[in-house]
Design a protein around this nucleic acid. Structure first.
Length: 782
DNA sequence: ATATCCGAGATTTTT
DNA sequence: TCTCGGATAT
């Protein structure tokens, strides 16, 4: 490594980069140049004649792996250092050692939805009532067992609760079904490899020798299986370097074990520890806010974060009336900066806790012509049409893939219905064959009628024709599939507009296949390497939505805080700082979950380079209902002297039919007071004038009455009027409403105080929905 | 066998 | 608000 490269590093960074043999723990605070250290260290190893093949860099996401590969390539061009995610690394290893864990090399990787299909099939076979425990809960239990290397057999030992009893039955059957289908789920990729290393000392030793220098990024997010894997590969050659930050551990819910990093020194006694505490990313103020927040966590390693960067502006905290105001104000602010040329769209990012919160933002940004890219939700490879077509490819690659078979057997419709499938399924289970094989011998299945048999045989012959192309380039196979299955024609013939979009998506898949073929030319006769088809399927099943994020594009970024890990932006907005959302509802019971939520916010805050704005809305619509919100408890933990707080001057009154029940209002007023007090005692408080549009905008463009908190409390008693029991309403009943007049109940749902009614009014009000316990709705005839 | 309608239910984060 | 599954109608 050139001196110039080394000199560009700080002493601490340099210490880590120049570390050669033996275990190394790099505790890296946010923005401390961690990736830089790893890539430089790789370069340093290469400079000291370590063959590239012996270096392995493992990351958590594809995005991080790609970034690392890119940067290594820059520093040391043409060196085939293997940078990969854990899952992809394991997938490759498993191809090679499939037989040792009971798989064939052409195994299929089930994604979450495939996995759920398989699980449901198992639940059906075992005749387990899924109303007791949802398939999701069972899947969750199995997943966490696998993450902790608990096998199906092990699970039988631990029967504590009712769920455990069910899982103890389902898990082994599910695992058997996966093996029979020659398939694995995501968790299996890790677990199989971990067990392989444990149970086959020879293989372990071979691999340990092969991967002499291993680096693991985001080590705080590893689970027990991942831990076992890197540990197993670092016994004879314990040159394991891990980087991480316990304060950025945000995947505990997925089985990540914070103990892995906290106990690293214990696991590897001669470890060298380097702390990277200097931050190169954020302003002093942002960093102090982050540091104060995370100081409220108890289970952590103390770190001294500091930066030589500017003081910067105070962090803003703004309360809006509604989520629309919040989104609107953010969009206006961004649009203004972009139009005046002060900043570019790509300088901004908006973070939230759950994807569902993006809606209002998208709308507002579109309204103001601000370009944005969203990392989330309906990812390309999850779309129905893509999964359908890939189903054909999967079955071609692995004839035992029953989930794929079930997906495509009647898709496009081939007049093969539920009953036929059930009989086929029974036969397959009885004779321990795959569904495809069962279809092939459908003539032997007595319960099937002639017509069903004929249809099944037709499908099998279609399959056989397609299977001829198994070794061809992917685009070619795909072309045959689309043509001969009739899938494309079926979409073309469809009246549905959505199907035309689907056609376009399929064209996109063809493009992806073509690009893949160009990168992976067909290897002739080298039986070692996988077919293009197999490689293609592996790639598509291991991509995630965050991978689609493009750092080069000039757009505002919208993403969850989880997705934001590892990124940075000049200006960041974090929205919905509300109890139940951040911290999330499901994290409020356990202290350790609450600490994880705090870390999540810490991650969000520390992505910001220059400016940070936190916000909340007094009213938020969630699951169709409008609710008064309670400010996040984390807000009270922030240092007010670092912040500019916009006083909550106004709050909106929900319209009558949507008003909240009294108890809720009490709680709420208290929490509001608390925040209000917090605001008043703040160092630098701002007035309405600083707030571009929230109050004024709501005031003019929306017919919302604005009153103060005191007004609201005074108003409450007067609000209590005699109410009719929600149960008093029935379907088709005539009702009247003080504002909308006479109407008729067209639908009812829920019960008790959550009972809702849909009413069709004779007036222009049209159809509206009410929470009966809170509405002014009355039976018309009393 | 398939289309359609309805209600119920559920919604964190990712490989 | 949206998605899924079940029941009913075609």
């Amino acid at each position: 490594m050139t001196n110039q490269l080394l000199e560009s590093l700080t002493p601490a960074q340099r210490e880590a980069v120049e570390h050669f043999d033996g275990p190394l723990l790099i505790l890296a605070g946010p923005g401390s140049g961690k990736t830089r250290v790893i890539t430089h260290r790789i370069t340093n190893l290469l400079d000291h004649q370590v063959p590239a093949r012996q270096i392995l860099a493992l990351t958590f996401t594809n995005k991080a792996a790609d970034e690392m590969r890119r940067r290594v390539e820059q520093l040391a061009p043409g060196q085939p250092v293997w940078t990969s995610t854990f899952h992809r690394f394991c997938a490759r290893l498993l191809r090679q050692y499939a037989a040792q864990v009971g798989l064939a090399e052409n195994y299929t990787i089930y994604d979450t939805s495939d996995q759920r299909s398989a699980l449901k099939r198992v639940l059906g076979v075992l005749n387990i009532d899924s109303t007791l425990f949802t398939p999701e809960r069972i899947a969750g239990a199995i997943s966490s067992a696998k993450n902790n290397l608990v096998t199906a057999d092990d699970y039988l030992q631990r029967r504590s609760g009712a769920l455990d009893a069910v899982v103890a039955r389902v898990y082994p059957a599910y695992q058997q079904m996966l093996l029979a289908s020659n398939a694995v789920d995501f968790d299996d990729l890790l677990m199989h490899v971990a067990r392989l290393l444990r149970e086959s000392p020879d293989t372990r030793a071979t691999l340990d020798a092969r991967y002499r220098y291993i680096m693991v990024d985001e080590y705080q997010d590893t689970n027990l299986a991942q831990y076992a894997i890197v540990r197993g590969l670092s016994i004879d050659h314990p040159n394991l370097a891990v980087t991480g930050d316990p304060d950025q551990s945000i995947y505990g819910w997925r089985g990540a074990n914070l103990g892995n990093i906290l106990d690293f020194e214990h696991d590897f006694p001669q470890v060298k520890i380097v702390k990277l505490e200097r931050n190169y990313r954020s302003t002093k103020r942002i960093l102090r806010v982050a540091d104060t927040l995370i100081g409220h966590n108890l289970r952590r390693k103390q770190k001294q974060l500091f930066t030589e960067n500017d003081e910067g502006q105070p962090v803003s905290l703004i309360q809006y009336l509604t989520q629309q105001d919040e989104a609107e104000a953010i969009a206006v602010r961004i649009a203004a900066d972009v139009h005046t040329g002060k900043r570019r769209a790509r300088d901004f990012a908006i973070f939230y806790r759950v994807n569902a919160l993006s809606r209002a933002l998208e709308f507002a940004l579109r309204e103001h012509g601000v370009p944005y890219q969203m990392v989330n939700g309906l990812e390309f490879y999850q779309r129905k049409e893509i999964k359908d077509v890939l189903g054909y490819l999967r079955l071609i690659n692995n004839p035992r893939d029953d989930v794929a078979f079930q997906r495509i057997i009647n898709n496009p419709p081939r007049k093969i219905g539920k009953v036929t499938l059930q009989r086929l399924n029974d036969h397959a289970l009885r004779h321990h064959t795959s569904l495809l094989d069962a279809a092939g011998e459908s003539r032997l299945i007595e319960s099937l009628n002639q017509r069903a048999t004929a249809q099944l045989m037709k499908f099998v012959s279609l399959y056989n024709r397609l299977a001829h192309f198994a070794a061809s380039p992917v685009e070619e196979i795909l072309g045959h599939v689309l043509l001969e299955s009739g899938y494309r024609q079926h979409l073309k013939d469809s009246e549905d507009d959505a199907d035309q979009d689907r056609l376009a998506n399929i064209e996109e898949l063809l493009t992806a296949a073509r690009q893949f073929d160009e990168l992976h030319p067909t290897v002739t006769e080298s039986s070692q390497s996988a077919s293009p088809l197999e490689a293609f399927l592996e790639q598509t099943s291991l991509v995630a939505d965050t991978d689609a994020w493009d750092s080069d594009i000039d757009r505002v970024t919208l993403m969850t805080m989880h997705a934001a890990k590892g990124l940075e932006f000049p200006v960041i907005f974090i929205i919905a700082m509300e109890e139940g959302l951040l911290p999330h509802e499901r994290s409020r019971q356990a202290m350790k979950d609450l600490e994880e939520e705090r870390r999540l916010l810490f991650v969000g805050i520390t992505r910001a380079q220059q400016e940070l704005q936190l916000s909340l809305a007094r009213n938020r619509e969630f699951r169709g209902l409008r609710r008064l919100t309670v400010p996040s408890q984390f807000l009270m933990e922030l240092p007010r002297e670092e912040m500019r707080i916009v006083e909550p001057k106004w709050i909106s009154v929900p319209s009558e039919d949507e008003s909240l029940d009294d108890a809720e209002m009490d709680d709420d007023a208290d929490a509001f007071d608390e925040l209000s007090e917090f605001f008043h005692s703040s160092g630098s408080s701002a007035t309405e004038a600083d707030l571009p549009s929230s109050a004024s905008c709501a005031d003019s463009s929306r017919a919302v009455s604005l009153i103060t908190a005191a007004d609201l409390r005074e108003k409450k008693p007067a609000d209590e009027k005699p109410r009719v029991s929600p149960e008093a309403f029935s379907l088709s009943m005539l009702v009247k409403h003080p504002e909308f007049g006479l109407g008729k109940v067209t639908a009812l749902s829920g019960s008790g105080h959550r009972r809702q009614a849909t009413v069709l009014f004779a007036s222009a009000a049209g159809e509206r929905r009410f929470v009966l316990a809170h509405s002014e709705l009355r039976p018309a005839l009393e």
